[in-house]
Computed example of a mutant assay.
Amino acid sequence: MAGKEVKFGAISLIVAISLVLTACSSGNNGQTSSAAGASSSPGASTAAGASSGAELTKITQVTNWFAQPEHGGQYAALAKGYYKDAGLDMTIQPGGPGVSATQIVASGQAEFGMGQADEILLARQNGIPLVAVAAIFQKNPQGVMFHKGKLKDLSELNGHKMYVGSGSAFWEYLKKAYKLDQVQEMKYTGSLANFVAEPDSATQIYVTSEPYTMQQQGVDVDYFLNYDLGYKQYGNILFTTEDYLKKHPDIVKAYVEASVKGWNYYKDNSDEINKVLQETNPDLKLEAMAYGAKAEEPLIFGGDAETNGVGFMSKDIWEGLQKQLVDLGILKKAEPIDDVYTNEFLPVK
């Protein structure tokens, strides 16, 4: 999908440093609310559930891109009333170019955000105390796409072009792990035109999107998932701040449980919710969303989620990612990993 370089989870060093230097602002354009007009202030009331007659707690979550299947469960929870049932007046604010969920949540303009695991670690290093409360993707959908039959191993990319966002943490890892010292790095712009015209090139992608685009254009491709190449990080992390979590654990729990319920609904009812996504983002095509929903299913519901449920996070995965970023010099030091994430608010399976 054109423009996905902005959301491509691996955050650049420049962006990481600027997180604490840049003041953030965000309008309400494109926001979707489950109970417009509720008068409670953000986080002011206890999430007690609509059935109790209590006033709904007004909260906002910022996603990491425009509405699409990677956000299907969040929009399912909104459309089916799960947030409202949990006592929440939810507004979903779509991400997009120039929208930083970490900055918006850190500033208090939203209570919850969505991002990648490495973004959480980098934000914390730069003084933004975010905490991951659920990982929607057990395997991050980031990958490297190439023309079919051209690569059997990523090391064979030496001597060829790779379209990639500058400073991407996943790429720094792959270069070191696969000794990619002879790759011609080209700026990723979101367009696949150069990749299509150059059969020996490769490009960063989301496996839920770009392979479908190539399929529609009659271009035979294959891809490696970054997770399977060794850069094991969670995708579409739901996060809040340490301060909000400590002050409003009941709201955090209500939010996480409703979100997980939404993802379980989306798994079997993606065709229904994709129409909701299309209303929010008219550029989406139902056929492309159907492809994305199918492609992402094993990445969300497989792995540890099979046993522990959607959103579960492993200490080994978090520690492994942190060590990789320290080894690369992207992180200065390793902090106690238990401060970075918690499974406390996930529903008991």
Rank of each mutant, 00 (worst) to 15 (best):
residue 249 P to K: 07
residue 195 F to L: 05
residue 28 N to K: 11
residue 269 N to F: 06
residue 163 Y to C: 03
residue 264 N to F: 04
residue 84 K to L: 07
residue 222 D to I: 02
residue 187 K to Y: 06
residue 126 N to W: 10
residue 118 D to C: 10
residue 12 S to A: 10
residue 292 G to A: 11
residue 338 D to S: 15
residue 332 K to V: 08
residue 193 A to M: 09
residue 17 I to N: 09
residue 232 K to I: 02
residue 20 V to W: 12
residue 228 D to F: 12
residue 288 A to S: 11
residue 306 E to C: 00
residue 324 Q to F: 08
residue 290 A to E: 14
residue 292 G to D: 11
residue 54 A to V: 08
residue 315 K to C: 03
residue 50 A to I: 11
residue 334 A to Y: 12
residue 153 D to P: 00
residue 302 G to F: 13
residue 188 Y to W: 14
residue 171 W to F: 14
residue 20 V to K: 12
residue 188 Y to S: 03
residue 312 F to R: 03
residue 165 G to W: 07
residue 201 S to Q: 05
residue 148 K to H: 13
residue 339 D to S: 15
residue 327 D to Q: 11
residue 144 V to K: 05
residue 176 K to F: 12
residue 60 T to V: 15
residue 31 Q to R: 11
residue 117 A to L: 14
residue 146 F to S: 06
residue 296 E to A: 13
residue 180 L to S: 12
residue 68 Q to M: 10
residue 15 V to L: 10
residue 334 A to P: 02
residue 97 P to F: 15
residue 326 V to C: 10
residue 15 V to K: 15
residue 23 A to W: 15
residue 323 K to I: 07
residue 79 A to M: 03
residue 272 E to A: 13
residue 118 D to V: 03
residue 319 E to K: 11
residue 11 I to E: 11
residue 334 A to K: 12
residue 331 L to A: 04
